[in-house]
Write a protein that binds this DNA or RNA. Structure first.
Length: 413
RNA sequence: GGAGAGGUGGCUGAGUGGUUGAAAGUACCGGUUUGCUAAACCGGCGUACGGGAAACCGUACCGAGGGUUCGAAUCCCUCCCUCUCCGCCA
């Protein structure tokens, strides 16, 4: 949420931001509605003050009651106008995207993200490497057919050694993050609209959300929603920041409108699994912790020995709540290209404003903390492992760091 | 799912129509005093929004939303949540 006072004082800046992001909110109309609200608010508060004063006299002076009644009539009329104007401003404000960091690259979509650096050597094969879906099928560890039978196309099973490998990865990643100061949670996998709105998923990604019929509940698209929402309405002592939270949850996305886009394999599915990193920090510290989360992500990739590159996300690919975002794209040997496996976003105070999460300094000063939301690992990382570690005989070697958790060092058909 | 109880400030807890934004206690902050620890005493101590250079003023807030009334924490309606007992259950 953009601070309405910031908008009043910097309309041109917000307009420029909207233009850059292709956001169609009419700022002038928003400001006009806001001015109406302020004017009405002043009138209403004056009337209420009069009413309160007069009604205290009513005991001794019953004739004052008639005056109060008149005030009430004009009050309720103005209150109606205020409610309508406020509704319009809230609506517009809800759709206003976050500001952008100065150095966000231009660009209209994911093709124009800016590669920053690469790590690791792409593997050389003396055979033709397979994509993960082919490997998964041959090894009997990815079952999309039964996923579709039991649920729907876009769902799948990890089976046998594949499920063990995935579990090992997720468990290992959680342990690593705990070792880096993160507090582990197991969270609800459903959340109410307020929570999805507060974390910026609504209204922007409404069509990506599975909603439970007849309930104010939706399946979470990420544990970011439940981990950030955890502190909704709270005031955090600044001395306790940063708070680092992690959780492993399933993530549900309808992927409406993305049919035909990367539909092969299990790269884009309705349910995936993710270990998440969330940081709440003082506003001035968010670039620091954004970098720290990035370092954590890269550390995990490096420990797995997966080649990857880091890309700086351009305007067109940066979601409305984001201020600055980096993705890690792992090398998918069978696919023959880099593909997104994790992302790391500095959301500044966009979420904390919506969720009314504040921090209080020792001296009593209050502010909205910033949040960082970064992936640690997902199923996509398992896919990258399969493609990178595949062998000529069709087996897949288990990355060394995961062997203590899988109990085997190779997946065979 | 059935029956009952309840939601007031950081916490405990008074308050059933009129200077109650809310007693009291506790916690916290400042001060005084007493060898230390501690205690005693005095003072302060909610949030948000609006106005103001500021002091400060106004408005709103006692789970949420409506209603009654000149006036609602207090009365009425709806909803939400929590707790206890019973049933069911991983």
């Amino acid at each position: 949420m953009i601070d309405i006072r910031f908008l009043r004082e910097n309309p041109d800046l917000v307009k420029a931001n909207c233009r850059r992001r292709g956001c169609r909110v009419d700022i002038d109309r928003l400001l006009a509605d806001d001015a109406t609200c302020l004017a009405l608010l002043r009138e209403i508060e004056d009337l209420r003050a009069q009413r309160n004063r007069l009604s205290k006299e009513c005991r001794d002076r019953p004739e004052a009651r008639e005056q109060v009644r008149e005030i009430k009539d004009s009050l309720s009329e103005k209150e109606g106008l205020l409610a309508a104007a406020r509704d319009r401003t809230d609506q517009a404000l809800a759709w206003l995207p976050n500001l952008l960091a100065d150095d966000v690259p231009d660009g209209g979509g994911d093709r124009e993200n800016l590669p920053l650096h690469e790590y690791g050597d792409k593997p050389e094969f003396d055979f033709r490497p397979l994509p993960h879906e082919a490997l998964g099928e041959r090894l009997g560890i990815i079952d999309t057919v039964r996923g579709a039978k039991v649920a729907q196309s876009g769902f799948y099973y990890w089976a046998g050694q594949g499920a063990q490998l995935a579990s090992a990865l997720f468990f290992w990643a959680q342990r690593e993050l705990i070792g880096r100061g993160f507090k582990l949670f197991m969270t609800p996998c459903l959340a109410k609209e307020e929570t999805l709105f507060g974390t910026g998923y609504l209204p922007f990604f409404k069509d990506q959300t599975y909603r439970i019929e007849g309930e104010d509940l939706s399946l979470i698209g990420t544990s970011e929603q439940t981990l950030v929402g955890y502190h909704a309405g709270e005031t955090l002592p600044a001395s306790e920041l940063p708070l680092r939270y992690t959780a492993f949850t399933p993530c549900f996305r309808t992927e409406a409108g993305s049919y035909g886009k990367e539909t092969r394999g299990i790269f884009r599915v309705h349910q995936f699994h993710k270990v998440e990193q969330i940081v709440f920090c003082r506003p001035e510290d968010s670039p620091l912790y954004h970098a720290q989360c990035q370092e954590n992500e890269e550390y995990l990739m490096q420990a797995l020995r997966l080649p990857y590159r880091v890309v700086d996300i351009c305007v067109g690919d940066l979601g409305a709540p984001g201020y600055k975002k980096y993705d890690i794209e792992a090398w998918f040997a069978g696919y023959g290209d880099y593909r997104e496996v994790t992302s790391n976003t500095n959301l500044t105070d966009f979420q904390t404003r919506r969720l009314a999460i504040r921090c209080r300094e020792e001296d009593g000063g209050r502010d909205f903390p910033h949040t960082i939301s970064a992936t640690a690992v997902t199923d996509r990382v398992v896919c990258a492992i399969l493609e990178y570690y595949q062998q000529a005989d069709g087996s897949v070697v288990v990355p060394e760091v995961l062997r203590p958790f899988t109990g085997f060092d190779r997946i065979r058909a």
